[in-house]
């Protein structure tokens, strides 16, 4: 539907925004941010204020910033939400998303209950299709830790479902 973006070795900030903004919002949301757009906008704003030594590393910087900001935000909210009631079960509805929700509810619920690092590793691997090295870079941990987080997370999910 849209015209293809002209391929360049180093995308401009605007091109990066155009191609990656939605993905960063969704990454923040999948990681559990309560306001994913706020996280994504702040990540882009920080990128814009920063001069990266390697211009090609902008995307990695964005991913890492989204992970960090989301982590901080969740930590901040945890105290405020200690007494928060569990959200009610979704009422039936008919949109395509509701049908998808019906199928995936159990799995997504189990994912949400995973420890934060394990959830991050799974989202980065199975939604963004990142390599272990890229996941490690985004999470700020070693590739070995990524392997550990992933295997524990998958084992937990298998045991839960």
């Amino acid at each position: 539907m849209e015209s293809p973006t002209v391929a360049r070795e180093t995308p401009s900030f605007a091109e990066l925004f155009a191609s990656q903004y939605a993905a960063m919002v969704r990454l923040a949301g999948l990681l559990g941010a309560d306001d994913p757009e706020d996280i994504a906008q702040e990540a882009f704003a920080r990128l814009h204020r920063r001069t990266l030594r390697d211009a090609g590393s902008s995307l990695a910087y964005l991913r890492s910033t989204v992970c960090n900001l989301t982590r901080n935000r969740i930590r901040h909210l945890r105290i405020a939400r200690l007494r928060r009631p569990e959200p009610p079960e979704p009422v039936p509805s008919g949109e395509h998303q509701a049908l998808v929700a019906e199928q995936h509810r159990e799995l997504l619920g189990a994912l949400d209950r995973l420890p934060r690092r394990q959830r991050e590793a799974l989202v980065l691997r199975y939604w963004l299709d990142l390599s272990e090295r890229e996941i490690a870079e985004a999470m700020g941990v070693s590739a070995g830790s990524v392997k550990t987080h992933m295997s524990r997370a998958l084992a937990t999910l298998r045991g839960t479902l």
Partner: peptide, 25 residues
């Protein structure tokens, strides 16, 4: 893994993108 991929893909579609995002950044 296949189910996880599909579930994440489905949930990702639920996050709206504001038309004013560029201005906000």
């Amino acid at each position: 893994e296949e189910r996880l991929r599909a579930a994440l893909h489905a949930r990702a579609q639920t996050y709206d993108i504001s038309p004013g995002a560029w201005h906000e950044v």
